[in-house]
């Protein structure tokens, strides 16, 4: 591979109370590449994604063992500040979740809570992020209108812009297109392709074709285990594990 490792899990186990959700996961993901997590519902792929920005912290009874490294630093160490971590690791959710505020307020929210007050800085960041998310031309005349008035696809790109505004280096996407129509999905996929030049992207998806289209690497999860991890092309053409093969050929899922 040769390239630098950005995200890494070492012997990671995760539990919801008594339920063993992730079983000794080991994986190393490359910088500025797109890695797709696939697998049937409940296989742990979303749980795993959320360990990289510690979104599971708020769930009662959730705990992890092992290590999650970002840039070789264990993010579950006591001295790691979760707010700092999340500035570096942006996240986009399954359903578009714009705040019930204006488009502008959505994009600059992350900066505002960091204490950035200067209007010029905020406005510039808003424009840059919206451009990166390929949304600027559609919304530049209605920045101060409610974000809830946008279409689903636009809302999801707004959520991506919102994540980009705080300049993360990693983007986590949890089935970002599952609630969108085909045209919006295509736009989001195109965007992911663009963004991987600057960001390390991890995307959870149910959609095998989507994984094939957007990702460089694919990881297949099954019942809390990482079954197989490889270059996407290799994985789709010659899966090593029987379970992977069954899944990508649609025998269960």
């Amino acid at each position: 591979m040769g390239k630098k490792t950005k995200l890494e899990a070492i012997d990671l186990d995760a539990y919801y109370g008594d339920f063993h959700a992730l079983k000794s996961i080991n994986i190393a993901m490359e910088e500025k590449a797109v890695t797709a997590f696939i697998g049937p519902s409940g296989c742990g792929k979303s749980t795993f994604l959320r360990t990289f920005n510690r979104m599971n912290d708020y769930i009662e009874g959730f705990r992890t063992e092992g290590q999650i490294l970002i840039d070789n630093k264990d993010i579950y160490q006591k001295d790691v500040r979760v707010d700092e971590l999340r500035k570096n690791v942006g996240m986009v959710f399954q359903k578009p979740n714009p705040f019930p505020k204006s488009i502008y307020e959505n994009v600059v929210y992350g900066l505002k809570i960091q204490g950035v007050k200067k209007k010029s800085v905020l406005e510039e960041a808003a424009e840059t992020s919206l451009r990166r998310a390929a949304l600027w031309d559609e919304v530049k005349d209605k920045l101060h209108k409610s974000a809830l008035a946008l279409s689903g696809g636009q809302q999801q790109r707004l959520c991506i812009a919102r994540a980009l505004a705080i300049s993360p280096s990693v983007l986590l996407m949890d089935e970002p297109a599952s609630a969108l129509d085909p045209i919006s999905t295509a736009k989001v996929e195109e965007l992911i392709y663009e963004l991987k030049n600057d960001y390390t992207i991890v995307i959870v998806t149910h959609n095998m074709q989507q994984a094939g289209r957007v990702s460089d690497y694919t990881a297949f999860f099954y019942m809390g285990e990482l079954v197989e991890f490889n270059k996407t092309k290799t994985m789709f053409t010659s899966p090593k594990d029987e379970r992977t093969q069954n899944y990508i050929t649609g025998r269960f899922g």
Binding site: N53, M55, Y58, V82, D83, E84, L85, R86, K87, G90, M91, F93, N97, P98, F99, Y109, G110, I113, Q114, C159, R162, A163, I166
Partner: peptide, 9 residues
């Protein structure tokens, strides 16, 4: 979730 993911306390 959206707010927490952006680093909000």
């Amino acid at each position: 979730d959206g707010s927490y993911a952006l680093g909000a306390s």
